[in-house]
Each structure stands twice: as C-alpha cells, then as structure tokens.
Design a protein around this nucleic acid. Structure first.
Lengths: 205, 205
DNA sequence: ACATAAGCGGAACCACATTCCGTTTATATA
DNA sequence: TATATAAACGGAATGTGGTTCCGCTTATGT
C-alpha cells in the first residue's frame, strides 16, 4: 500500500543497512508476560492490576506497556491465545479418539474454556471498543474447529447431520456463559445433553 | 468476604418518635441524586465518574457517599428504580388497552428498558458481589407484572395459555441483552415475534 | 571491541473511588 | 423567636490503579 519501492522486504528494512528482527529478550519477556497475565487473570479475574502482572512476569511496568499499549490489549491477547488453544485442541482430540468421542470431549473443553473466563462476558459487554474484534475472532477460529469434528462424526454415522456447527457453537457458548451463575457443572451437563441429542438422531449405517 | 448491612430504603420508621424523621434537604438531595445518576448513566454509561453525578445533582461528593456508601450502591438504586418503573407500567397499560394490546405494549416497554441499559449486562457479569441481588429483584418485581398481563390476555382468549410468564420474561431478556450489539431494532422485532407467537396459538372461544 | 537503536525499569502523573472532618443547617424545644 | 444539637453537607486528603516519560541497559550487526 505505502511502499512504492523494490520488493526487498525479506523480513526487515532493505534500504537501510542491517536488519534488526526481534531482540531475543523482548520475545522472552512477551511470552512471560502472556503467561503471567493468563495466570493472574485466572486467579484474580481480568480486573487484576497491571502492576501485579508485571511483577509476576518479573518485568517493569514500562515493559508491559511497550508490548501492550493499554491494559485491554493484554486482555485481548490472552483471550485470543486461549481461543487458539481451544481451537488447536480439535485436531489433537480427533487424532486420539473416535469421531463422536472427540466431538464430545472438545465440547467439554470448550465449556471449561468459557466457564473459566468469568471476565469474558463482562469484557464483551463492557462497551469498550477494544473488545469489539473478539467475537469475530471467536467465531472465525472456533467454528472451523468444531465443524471439522462435527463433519467427521457425521461421516462416521455417529451423530445426526442437521445441526450446523455455528448453531451448536453459539448454543454451547450461551449455555456456558449464563451458567457461570450456577456453577460450571450445570453448563457441563447442558452441553453434554446437546451432544447426546446429536448422537441420538444419528443415522446408523 | 464482606459483611452485609443494608438498611431499608423506606426511611419512615413510624414506630419511633417523630422527633428526627428525615431532614427535608436530605430527602431532596437523595431524589436529585437518583435523578442525576439516571441521566448520567443513560448518557455516559454506568462507568461515569461519581464526581460528574454529584456535580449534575448540585451536591458535594461527601453527600453522594452519605446516601450511597459506595458507587455500586448508586448503580443498584438506579436499576431498582427503573425496574420498578417498568413493573408499574403494567397496571397502567392494562387499564388503557385491551389485554392483548397491553401485553404487547408492555413487552416493548420492557425491551426498551433492557436495551437502553448497556451497563446492566456488564454490571451483572462483572463479578462484583454488590450486584448479586439484582437478578432476584428483577424476577421478583417483573414476573408478577408480566403474569398479570399474560393471565388477563389469556382469560380474554387473546393468547395461548401454555407459556409461563417466567419463561417469556427470560426469553425476552436474553433477546434484548444479546441484541444491543446489533441495535435495539432487532430485539424489538424478535420480541414482537414472540408475542405474535402467543397470539397465534390463542384458543378462540 | 564499538556503535547504536531496541528494550527496559520505574518514578511521576493523572483519574477516580472513598474517607475524614470541620462547618452548616433543619428541626425540636424553651 | 432564640437556642441546642444531631443530621447533613462539602470538599480536601488519601489510596489505588492506569498510563506516560525518559535516562539507562544491552542485544546485535559490523
């Protein structure tokens, strides 16, 4: 868009002189920060002070703000990371279990993910524009993950075929979010019921 | 956690001696504060600074905290007040319209109430224990209001009888809360659809 | 080994909730 | 009407947490 120069962008500046890719300590700190934030958010909620996270990660506050210009950026990064982890669990489960079982296990994994994130619902409803892109990312990342499991289970004749991944995902998300109020056990059971419903209508062949 | 020692809002203790009932200016300030808070929350969201509310009400900050020991108490008071207003609208609408029409209008009134409160969903999901009693108050106040309208419409044969007020209320609330994201028009339409559904199955007699 | 810019740390600053306390004032009573 | 008094008031002070700033440190290419 803005470069009208040569195509010499093999990773860094070409016209200058040397390329400064990414300093090793910077990458190390960023990883530690994300890990610390994940732990702190899980134990103290998403409203935990930035200072606490910096301390846990063993870095100064300035370093936090260098990597994440504002608090919400850190929160978003952690959520994206956890969404990714949940999505990535799909192919792994698919490789380890029969299609129907893989689907069922992934759904439980999903419930745990949502139910554990007390802060997610609050963040999404907070009105802070910084969180606006999260729902789209959520769908975009998790829908294909679930779809692959669902399709595989359907192809194996283990579940019915008239439920879309999108609808199943949203239903499970709604159940899980509303369920934090009455404990994740309730959500687990309701989602389990959904999956059993899928199995019940399977076309044996 | 923390101790609970909420006082009754009424303030009129007839059993005591009438010597120090409630100072007139205190009551005036409290009313003004609630009114100012309602206006500020509506225009700036529930995260608006307490100072802004105090200023708008024309009182000092100390006065705000005299009436509402902490921020969340003010928020809760405003929500309770608006829940009350919504509930009180039921008998009024019932007196002015035919049963089915009164029901339909109240449901729209309800949608407007929920949809306008961006902050409500966020508050309820915030994890702050101060908001815990709100859901119960919500049900306790709004369910009877809706039930009376629903029963009247059912008695007049204008709507079917197999839907509980509780379920209708929760369905409308869910639709309205999720809908603020895509404009209240969507919620209005979905709830209208619900009401039409009620009418469709009416037993003509 | 040296130059240099990326990165770092944390003091400083700002915004907001909440507390504290001296001053004002509504109300009962003489 | 004047006086006493406790309720109520206002706002400066305090505490906490987000964000900015900038001089110092250090990884990295030559």
């Amino acid at each position: 868009m803005s470069d009208e120069r040569k195509e010499q962008e093999d990773g860094r500046r070409a016209g200058e002189r040397a390329h400064r890719p990414v300093r090793a300590d910077a990458k190390r700190n960023l990883d530690g920060l994300l890990q610390a934030a994940m732990a702190v958010f899980a134990s103290s909620g998403v409203d935990a002070p930035v200072r606490e996270i910096a301390e846990k990660a063993g870095v100064g506050i300035g370093t936090v703000y260098r990597h994440f210009p504002e608090r919400s950026d850190l929160v978003v990064a952690v959520f994206r990371r956890e969404i990714d982890a949940c999505a990535d669990a799909a192919p792994i489960l698919a490789a380890e279990h029969a299609p129907g079982e893989a689907l069922a296990r992934w759904m439980q994994r999903f419930v745990d993910f949502i139910a554990a994130k007390r802060g997610l619902a609050a963040a999404l409803h907070s009105g802070n524009p910084a969180f606006d892109p999260l729902p789209a990312y959520f769908q975009q990342r998790l829908q294909p993950a679930l779809r692959s499991l669902l399709d595989a289970a359907a192809a194996a004749g283990e579940v019915r075929t008239d439920i879309a991944a999108e609808d199943l995902l949203n239903a499970a998300a709604s159940l899980s979010m509303h369920a934090y109020a009455q404990g994740s056990e309730h959500a687990r059971r309701m989602v389990s019921l959904l999956v059993d419903g899928l199995r019940y209508g399977a076309v044996q062949r």
